[in-house]
Design a binder for these strands. Structure first.
Length: 442
DNA sequence: TCTGGGGTCCTAGGACCC
DNA sequence: TCTGGGGTCCTAGGACCC
């Protein structure tokens, strides 16, 4: 029998913060998104207070304070490094580890038929990771990924499992399916679960009991796969994930957003530069560049402007300055079009008002259409000296690697930090900056 | 005043071709 | 008055995930 494990870190970001603040164990903790915008992680105690995932922080600030909830800005350097510790421990327990997200990984246990007690093996794994990293984890073991995800939720919910829930018989599977709400099934989101409840499907068991024909005719192939997985037939594969199909860097800007076009350009140049760097790390070149920028979805006053523009390059590239200039050209021309259309027919008196440009709340750059960097088709009309360019990029990456990122950058990114996201409640870089390492007092 | 960021996959429908 | 049929490719947008 094939068996897969899913290891899931409990309330990962909160647990990371707590590892370095043991005084907060047992107390409510939340972690905020960039700009301290939304609540994106909650400890069990915070969940018990009724705090929802994704709630805007400003709406909950007073409540959090009244209830003594510890609040943290997101600290991705810390979470990334803690994740790495957890994953390297998990890798010791399986021949095949698939890291699925910052706090989750699948483990292939198929080769472990000779292990007499896989449940006990799982419990050991959970105990070891929790003890060694300070991050509590839950492990589900089952014949398919979808069922393993489900098992891990049981492992988390019921203390009696000691962190590890094994679903290795049809009887256990049936029982679990009946207890599991359809909306919590992996791959069934809000939209689909609403449809299903409308059709009388309330639990995973209700759904699994439908005929294949019925599922095919009502939903897409993705949902059919989920149905098969619930019935114990593996059909989701995770292989070859490391090559991404698109790479995106985007940010929301603090408060009302950015009105100054120069500042917006600097931000976009910085996003382009970061995208290009991520892309070089996976040794690709991109064929397409998309830039986007838009005003707030929530603002009811002020001009609304949505920019989304894509350009195909004449030859794939991984050069920061080329990608950056393509993104900036698209951005500028879209803004020019907007301005011209809003200036047309206005007299001078109205212009001052019109020229108060829109406040762009969010912007980003997406690179896609990747080809491996060693397999580039030369463009017949390409006049750029590729070899020289490659040498320059390598040199810059190397300087930045040694001296801190952004030490060398292109001039369009500006000499100041273009915008400083709010992170009022940020913890320190306990694991990645020597100046922030905790000091033990004897 | 203040509402995250980064991905994947699928489908419908338009553009284009013969 | 009457305005084809079938195929491919691309893109935007929706749904999902963490």
């Amino acid at each position: 029998m094939q068996l897969f494990g899913l290891a899931d870190c409990n309330n990962f970001y909160c647990s990371c913060e707590r590892t370095f603040r043991p005084d907060l164990v047992g107390k409510p903790v939340v972690v905020l998104s960039n700009n301290d915008g939304c609540i994106i992680a909650r400890s069990e105690e915070a969940k018990a207070l009724g705090i929802k995932m994704g709630e805007p922080f400003f709406q909950r600030r007073a409540f959090l304070q009244e209830n003594g909830v510890a609040v943290f800005s997101s600290n991705y350097a810390l979470y990334g490094s803690m994740s790495h510790r957890v994953m390297s421990l998990l890798a010791q327990y399986t021949p095949q580890l698939d890291v699925y997200s910052i706090d989750e990984a699948f483990l292939d246990f198929s080769a472990f038929n000779n292990i007499p007690d896989i449940k006990q093996y799982g419990e050991q794994l959970v105990h070891r990771v929790t003890k060694a990293t300070g991050i509590p984890i839950s492990l589900g073991i089952a014949p398919t990924y979808t069922l393993a995800k489900m098992s891990s939720k049981f492992a988390k919910k019921y203390k009696g499992y000691k962190g590890c829930c094994l679903m290795d018989t049809d009887e256990k599977r049936q029982k679990a399916l009946q207890l599991f709400p359809i909306k919590d099934v992996w791959g069934i989101g809000r939209r689909l679960s609403t449809d299903m409840v409308y059709q009388g499907i309330h639990t995973a068991a209700d759904f699994a009991a439908k005929s294949e024909q019925w599922v095919r005719s009502h939903f897409t192939v993705t949902t059919l796969r989920t149905w098969k997985e619930l019935n114990g037939i593996p059909c989701i594969s995770l292989d070859e994930l490391p090559q991404k199909k698109s790479i995106c860097t985007s940010r929301s800007f603090p408060e009302r957003g950015i009105a100054d076009v120069g500042a917006l350009e600097e931000a976009v140049a910085a996003f382009a530069s970061l995208c290009a760097k991520k892309m070089r790390e996976q040794q690709s070149c991109c064929q397409n560049v998309t830039v986007f920028a838009h005003t707030s979805r929530f603002a009811t006053d002020g001009p609304v402007h949505v920019i989304q523009k894509t350009r195909s390059l004449s030859a794939p590239t991984q050069d920061t300055s080329e990608i950056s200039s393509v993104a900036l050209n698209m951005l500028r021309s879209e803004i020019d079009i907007y301005r011209n259309s809003h200036l047309a027919g206005k007299d001078i008196g109205e212009r001052a008002d019109v020229m108060s440009s829109p406040h762009y709340k969010k912007a980003g750059v997406i690179l896609w259409g990747f080809v491996p960097q060693n397999a580039i088709q030369q463009d017949l009309f390409d006049h750029i000296d590729r070899n020289r360019q490659t040498a320059l990029i390598k040199a810059i990456d190397e300087i930045n690697r040694k001296n801190g990122h952004d030490r060398v950058r292109i001039a369009t990114e500006g000499t100041d930090v273009p915008f400083e996201p709010d992170h009022q409640y940020r913890s320190r870089q306990f694991t990645t900056d020597i100046n922030d390492v905790l000091v033990a007092q004897i």
